[in-house]
């Protein structure tokens, strides 16, 4: 489809149609909405529509969660095993073998786990959501609903795993007799930040994946690569001062630093310019992701 197609675009069509004016005004009819379907027409009720479909969102999220551990032997234990083993490996490699310094007096395993929480949240939302559209192809080609629901609902699964991990973190902290500071009240803010940081690239990639299946190979690579370039196994304070700002352009750096700042109390300092840079990158990615998603979502059913 080229933009030179000889059809009037939404901008040139009058908003009120004869159909709408012929509508009787009794109570029953008031609830009916006039839907106009047209090429390239931006849906002005987009976010309202999304709200209308909140029950579908909830039920899809619930489906993904309840299906996840069916027919597995150790079930939910998987959610805890993965980060726990990674923590042990990272503590041994970075803490004991490479002898990297921790933040202040924080025990190294606590430092690693506090960084791993947001990393696993980020990476699992990214990988769950980026394959979600193609994974739900059957649904998308047969029923209408705001497509944004699918990647968003699949991200909820990652939040459940995250909640389990938070409990484990507190157990580890208790083991090392480590008491967090008042900053912990900001934790929800950083959870939201982590979700937003992952949603931006996830939306971009899931919509690209519909058209070009190459992108499904990108995600495992990004996740594997990101684990080492992000300060998961080490503190971002070990990065040389002159590089630190550029290092923070990786949005995950800001998220992880934020998590450590609020979980590890005064021991971990927040590097403010870098954190701001991360915020800007997160916002830009989110804007780009949503924009691309909305631009392409009407063609999903044709391409999938």
């Amino acid at each position: 489809m080229t933009s030179s197609a000889p059809f009037p675009d939404s901008a040139t069509t009058p908003e009120r149609s004869p159909l709408a004016t012929s509508r009787p005004a009794d109570g029953l009819q008031q609830s009916e909405r006039l839907i106009i379907l047209e090429r390239g027409r931006a849906d002005r009720n987009y976010w309202l529509d999304l709200w209308h479909y909140r029950e579908l969102f909830a039920i899809l999220a619930w489906r993904d969660i309840s299906v996840r551990y069916k027919q597995t032997v150790i079930g939910v234990t998987w959610a805890f095993l993965r980060p726990f083993l990674t923590m042990i490996v990272f503590t041994v490699i970075f803490g004991s073998l490479a002898k990297l310094p921790s933040d202040g007096a924080v025990p190294y395993p606590v430092l690693v786990f506090a960084g791993m929480l947001p990393w696993f949240l980020f990476s699992s939302i990214l990988s769950e959501a980026s394959g979600s559209l193609v994974g739900n192809a059957q649904l998308i080609s047969k029923v209408y609903f705001p497509r944004l629901i699918v990647p968003a609902a699949s991200g909820v699964v990652a939040l459940v795993d995250f909640a389990i991990n938070v409990v484990i973190l507190f157990l580890i902290m208790a083991w090392f007799a480590f008491v967090p500071n008042w900053q912990i009240v900001f934790l929800p803010v950083f959870i939201v930040l982590a979700v937003l940081a992952s949603l931006g690239p996830a939306l971009l990639i899931t919509s690209l994946n519909v058209k070009y299946r190459d992108f499904r190979y990108v995600i495992p690579f990004v996740v594997q690569f990101g684990l080492y370039v992000s300060p998961v196994g080490f503190s971002s304070a070990v990065v040389p001062e002159s590089w630190r700002f550029w290092y923070s352009l990786n949005p995950v750096v800001g998220v992880i630093d934020g998590f450590r700042w609020c979980l590890l109390g005064g021991e971990s300092q927040l590097y403010v310019p870098g954190f701001m840079a991360s915020l800007v990158v997160v916002a830009a990615m989110l804007w780009l992701g949503i924009r691309h998603f909305r631009k392409t979502e009407k063609t999903f059913a044709d391409l999938i």
Binding site: A5, L19, E32, L34, I35, L37, R39, Y144
Partner: peptide, 17 residues
Amino acid sequence: SRITEPSAGRVEILGRV
């Protein structure tokens, strides 16, 4: 049923489909 959008012309629908 709004699964795909038309390439030309338009449809007006009144009510829940």
